[in-house]
Amino acid sequence: MKKIGVTGGIGSGKSTVCRVFKAMGVPVYEADERAKWLTNHDPLLRADIMRLLGPMAYDASGQYNRAFVAAQVFTNPTLLTQLNALIHPRVQADTLRWAAAYAELPYVIKEAALMNAAGQGNDLDAVVVVMAPLDLRIRRIQHRDPQRTEAEINAIISRQISDEARQQLADELLINDETRLLIPQIIRLDRAFRD
């Protein structure tokens, strides 16, 4: 079974691409959502996070305190690296358990905002990068999250890797610019991944 990574910048349409793959019967592991689940439900990970960031990392109801954690780590790159070093191995192990359930299939998809090239610290066979022009990405985010200002959106984009760096990771590119049909591009990849 092949493991295919799908990534792209915020607003690129990677979630849309993954919904199409799901509709075609391909299992999709949503790494970012799963990481959120693990931070709340994996007792060892919770304990590790509290050791690193203190008890305020979880709120009074016991839920992961995203606002507090973000305030701590985004101004402290060392702390962010330490937090990622706790979360990423747990997500990787969870991905392997999840993928094992689909061993009879030709391929599965792992969707994540952050991803290395295939084979660089992961067990991916290929990485698909979803690309869209920056102005279109901003419009999509504003439509999806109308409470966000353009300055906030640009700040998020500036914290992500550049499109050029993302393209360096790609074994395949999907262009989601609303001038090219997306589904035929996905069907072409599906056929290639099944070979």
Rank of each mutant, 00 (worst) to 15 (best):
F193Y: 14
E30Q: 10
N116R: 09
P55W: 00
R46L: 05
A132G: 08
E152I: 12
E172D: 12
I4L: 04
H41D: 07
I87W: 00
Y107C: 10
S162V: 11
Q168K: 15
R34I: 12
A57M: 00
C18I: 06
I187K: 11
T149P: 09
I175L: 13
I138V: 14
M24C: 06
E172H: 15
T75I: 09
E104A: 15
M131S: 09
Y102G: 03
Q63P: 04
F21K: 10
P55C: 00
L114D: 01
G5T: 08
L80C: 05
F193E: 13
Y29G: 05
F193R: 08
I175C: 04
R188C: 07
E33F: 03
Y29A: 10
Y58R: 04
I157D: 03
H41C: 12
R159Q: 15
A23T: 10
D42F: 04
S162L: 11
Q120V: 12
T39I: 09
I161M: 11
S61R: 07
I141D: 03
N154D: 11
L181C: 13
I49S: 08
R66Y: 01
G25V: 07
P55Q: 04
K22Y: 01
A126G: 13
L38F: 00
C18R: 03
D135E: 15
A151Q: 14
Y58N: 07
Q168G: 14
R191F: 07
F21S: 11
E152M: 13
M50Y: 00
L169V: 13
I161R: 09
D94C: 12
Y107S: 05
M56C: 04
Y107E: 12
V127M: 02
L114H: 01
I4M: 07
M56F: 03
L169I: 11
D145M: 09
I156Q: 10
D123T: 10
E152S: 15
L44V: 12
E164W: 02
R51P: 01
A165K: 13
Q185A: 07
A31E: 04
K3M: 13
G9H: 03
A118I: 03
A31K: 07
